[in-house]
Every structure is written in C-alpha cells, then in structure tokens.
Design a protein around this nucleic acid. Sequence first.
DNA 1: TGAACATATGAACAATTGTTCATATGTTCT
DNA 2: AGAACATATGAACAATTGTTCATATGTTCA
Lengths: 113, 113
Amino acid sequence: MADIHPEHAHIIEQTKANMPSEEILEKTAEVFKVFGDKTRIRILSALSEGEMCVCCLCDLLEMNQSAVSHQLAVLKSARLIKSRREGKQIYYSLDDAHIGAILYTGISHAEED
Amino acid sequence: MADIHPEHAHIIEQTKANMPSEEILEKTAEVFKVFGDKTRIRILSALSEGEMCVCCLCDLLEMNQSAVSHQLAVLKSARLIKSRREGKQIYYSLDDAHIGAILYTGISHAEED
DNA sequence: TGAACATATGAACAATTGTTCATATGTTCT
DNA sequence: AGAACATATGAACAATTGTTCATATGTTCA
C-alpha cells in the first residue's frame, strides 16, 4: 500500500465526510442487489404495467410457481412490491412509484449503446 | 400451476408484448448487480465527488489494494467507471453522468423511511 | 367438512461472488 | 539497467444466491 501524498490527504478527508453513513451505503447496496437478477427484473417490469396475480406471472415468465413465489418473497421483504388478496388469488404490484423510476433508469441505461 | 382465467390471458399477452427484450432485461439485471455490493457503492459514492487514485481509495475505504483493484476491474468492465494514468498512479472516475444519477436514485430510496 | 385450488416455505444443491495471498505488469528515478 | 513504487491479476476459499422438489398454509365451494 502506498503512502498518501500530502495534497491527497485533504481530499480523502473531504470525501469521507461527504459519504453517506455506513447504514445508508449498506441499504443502498441491498436495494440494488434485489434489482440485480433477471427474474426479478422481469417481474418488476411486468408489474410496472399494473398488478398481476402469481399464476399470471408464472405463465408470463414460463417459470414454475415455487421459483416465482420465492422471488416475490425477496421483492416483498425488500419492500419493492406489495400484495393484496382477492379470494384465492394474490395480486402483486410495485410498492410505490419510486420503484418504477429506479427500474426505468436501469433499463434506459441498458438500452444505450 | 393454475389454469389461466380467460380475462387474464389478454393481460398476459399485452404485458409480454410490452416487456423489453430478453437482451435488455439481461443487461439491466447485470448493471444493477454491479451496483449491488457495498464496497462498490462506496467506491462509486467516492468517485461521485471527483476522480481519485487507487491508493486514495484504499485509504478511504480502509481496504487492501488487491480487493479495491478487483472491484475497480468489475466496475470498469461494466463501464460504470473509467480510468486515466498520470505517471505511476491511475485515476478513476464515473464513466458518465448517468451513473451518478442511478447511484443517487438508489441512495435516495435507501434514505427514505 | 372435505376436496380442489392458489400461494408460501423449508431443505438441498449447483453456481456465483468477494476477499485474501502471492505474484505479475508497468512506470519513474537514479 | 535496477530499485522502488502503483496497480492489476490469477488461484483458492468461504459465503451467498437462485432454482427445484416436496410439502405446508390458507381460501373457496359443494
């Protein structure tokens, strides 16, 4: 590891002071981690069009019900989606508009170049 | 797996038609995956203040040089950061303004509630 | 109440990931 | 050219993750 040049010491302190807290950094990484899976992106993308029940998602994604439910649980515990029951079926939707915005930003970035 | 109700079939087709391509969905997940690590979020957060050399990052993050370089390589191959050499040192910075925007959106979300 | 349906959940396994250690590459200065 | 410095990279390992299979929970309807 190299010695720190005198003129760098100040920048390091400055940057350290401006960094979000460890707790926020941790939370931020956790949120992105949840977005960082193709199956979950597909679910979020579908839900960005409106609420949908589990069986529809299974059909849409062509995945078995267990795999879909597991990912819905991950998304829900991260508060990216919410659910409501209607009879036997459970409908999922994006938790708030913010989620759609994050998703859209990421998709836009991926669509470039 | 349940049968699809007739009124759902239409929604499924509609949603499927509006979904980004598999390639875009894949890319989107990959980008978020790179954002989904605390060390990398700390690096990106630091670089959002301006360019920084590797040894400064090591000092700032209190991590060894190898670990930092490995993560810089991940960030660079995902085109989230770029580098420039100045003598013996290599300075890293965010690849474009878009990256800062995505980071900021995630941090803002984490800061809520 | 019991059968059929819709969804959730636990265990297990392969695959992926982040860090460390050791070493290689590339630059500067004498 | 050789020494010192700054960074990159390969191998190895523990830890985490996504899916599958089997089964549990909760709801509706006869």
